[in-house]
């Protein structure tokens, strides 16, 4: 399995992402993509059935992390410095949500990322901007991959 494949498996087996039912679709070339099927347990507004904003934050952060990791030439630890999210419109109850992130630039210390959440491409539910700190020369937290 290549590095992207390992990252994808590791990021798919993250306990929180498993708990909310998210699935990593793609990692590579400085991008990350995942999908999140609708589930009643993710609801943040019990009257409308709209998912909690925190769910969107979680998946955007996760996709941003994948985009950064896959933009680096070798595996090294990264951590989110900050994340800004604009909620353009509520997610539609019952519909699955897609998330896409792109690493815009990597400097020696910092990686800059843009990401979006949507049902239909080009019609965003949320847009986000994030910065990640890169720790070069440290032992990387290799993806924790369960044995088959």
């Amino acid at each position: 399995m290549d590095v992207s494949g390992l990252i994808k498996r590791g990021m798919n087996q993250t306990a929180y992402i498993e708990a909310i039912g998210g699935e990593v679709l793609h990692v590579g070339g400085g991008t990350g993509k995942m999908r999140l099927p609708y589930s009643d347990k993710l609801v943040g507004d019990p009257d409308s059935g709209v998912v909690h904003g925190g769910v969107i934050t979680g998946c955007l952060d996760h996709c941003c992390g994948m985009a950064v990791v896959s933009a680096l030439r070798e595996a090294m630890p990264i951590a989110t410095l900050d994340l800004r999210i604009d909620y353009m419109k509520p997610a539609t109850p019952g519909a699955e949500i897609f998330f896409e992130a792109k690493c815009i630039r990597v400097t020696h210390e910092i990686a800059f990322v843009r990401a979006s959440a949507f049902h239909t491409e080009g019609d965003p539910i949320a847009l986000s901007t994030g910065a990640f700190i890169i720790t070069r020369g440290a032992v990387p937290p290799l993806p924790h991959v369960k044995a088959d």
Binding site: A15, H52, G54, G58, P141
Partner: peptide, 24 residues
């Protein structure tokens, strides 16, 4: 809870969980 983990190596709580807690 184990389901809040985002980085199993450190281990650390997922950034999305942290955001969810503060937004709530």
């Amino acid at each position: 809870g184990a389901h809040l983990i985002g980085n199993p190596v450190l281990p650390a709580i997922h950034g999305g969980v942290i955001g969810s807690l503060m937004e709530t």
